[in-house]
Each structure stands twice: as C-alpha cells, then as structure tokens.
Amino acid sequence: MQILKDEVKKSIRKAALSEFKKHGYLKASIRQIADAAGITPGNIYRYFKSKDDLFDELIQPIQEQLAEVLRVTKQEVDSTLCTELSDHLLILRRIDASLMLLFKESSTELTILLNLSEGSRFASAKQDVITLVNQIITEVFTEEIAPSGVLSPKEQLAASMIATTMIESISLILRDHEDGDTIKMLVDELLYLYCTGISEKIKLLKA
C-alpha cells in the first residue's frame, strides 16, 4: 500500500512540474495536473493541501540552494578580499557557475523558480539575484571610477540596468533551452560579453 502511495505522489509531482513549467504558478491548474497524473483532483488533496503546498514541495529545495549561494556570495562581496575589478568579475563568474550547477541538478525547478513563480511566495527569487549582482557591479564602478566613494545617479542606473539585463538574459536562456551543454555555452558567452563590456566602460570613464 505504501509503495502505491509513493508511486501516486511521484506521478503527481511529475505532472505538476510539467504543468508549472508550461503555464507558471498562477495559471497552473490542479485539474490539469490530476488529468496528467491519471487521478482525480480530489486525490491530489489527499497528498497536498493546496496548489501552494504542492508548488512549495517542488520548488522550495532549489530556492533554499539558491538562497545559500547568494548568502555565501554576498559574504564574499562584503569582505575585504574584493578590492580589484578582477575580483568582482570573478564573483560574477562564480554566480554563473553556481546557477549552472543548480540547473544541472534541478533544471525544471530552477527554470520555474526564476521565470514562472509569480504569485507564489518565491516570486522574489530572481530579484534577489539581480540585487546581489547590482551590488557587485555597483562596488566595481565605485572602486574604479568614483574616488569620492559615491556614484553619480547615471552610473547607479547603469549598474542597475546591467544587473537586471544580465540575469533576465540568463533566465531566458534557461527558459528557452533544455540541453545543459548548450545552456552553459550560451551563459558563458553572455558573461564574457558583459564582463568585457564592463571592463571597457570603466576604461572609457577613467580615460
């Protein structure tokens, strides 16, 4: 009997991941999940109290892993170890590598977390990554081009724009591709272009 229950729950989880990836949290339907799992909607509620409960079980583990990546990275950014442009750009590449590792382990869950969690309690996950990257880029600009320690409003906006577009671009790559090698190639190329662009911008501003 327990084996049967485990198999039913496994079928629900598999169907739910597919539904959330296809329609996102807000538009996902318990009825569609039940149909895909070959059970009635009522049976889902024997295992999960609500759509929230089901979504949480699927997405919370990857959200916790991402939160830990951000926590460790922020500690490194805040430390005195980051004093050169190369230090900060290396951290951006570590964020890239961490996202790729999470994708390798839980590709569907990470894609849903970053692109399709609007309306859930995980809706701020992408913004949390953007905020950290913005902090890194802001510190790079401040260290390199603001002797006073204060960036101009224009440079603050530039740092915010770079951080937002960088993470949005990575999120789109995760959304539109499933092959891990292709994703790594595209994200590595994206990071290279951004890091090169940041370096060139700093050279121009310091000239």
Rank of each mutant, 00 (worst) to 15 (best):
Lys5Ser: 15
Ser11His: 12
Arg13Gly: 03
Lys14Tyr: 14
Lys21Gly: 11
Gly24Asp: 08
Tyr25Ser: 08
Lys27Gly: 11
Ile33Gln: 00
Asp35Tyr: 13
Asp35Gln: 14
Ile39Gln: 04
Tyr45Lys: 01
Arg46Tyr: 09
Lys51Ile: 04
Asp56Glu: 10
Gln60Leu: 15
Ile62Met: 04
Ile62Phe: 03
Gln65Leu: 10
Thr73Trp: 00
Lys74Glu: 07
Gln75Ile: 11
Val77Glu: 08
Val77Met: 13
Cys82Trp: 12
His88Gly: 15
Leu89Lys: 06
Leu92Arg: 13
Ile95Asp: 03
Leu99Asp: 10
Met100Ala: 05
Leu102Glu: 08
Thr108Trp: 00
Leu113Arg: 03
Leu114Lys: 02
Leu116Phe: 12
Glu118Trp: 06
Ser120Thr: 08
Arg121Ala: 00
Ala125Thr: 09
Asp128Ala: 14
Asn134Ala: 11
Thr138Ile: 11
Thr142Trp: 01
Ser148Asn: 13
Ser148Ile: 14
Leu151Thr: 06
Ser152Phe: 13
Glu155Ala: 07
Gln156Met: 14
Ala158Ser: 13
Thr165Arg: 09
Met166Asp: 04
Glu168Asn: 06
Leu174Ile: 12
Asp176Lys: 11
Glu178Asp: 08
Glu178Cys: 04
Ile183Trp: 01
Met185Asn: 15
Leu186Lys: 05
Asp188Cys: 02
Leu193Gln: 07
Tyr194Met: 09
Cys195Ser: 14
Ser199Trp: 01
Ile202Thr: 01
Leu204Cys: 01
Lys206Arg: 12
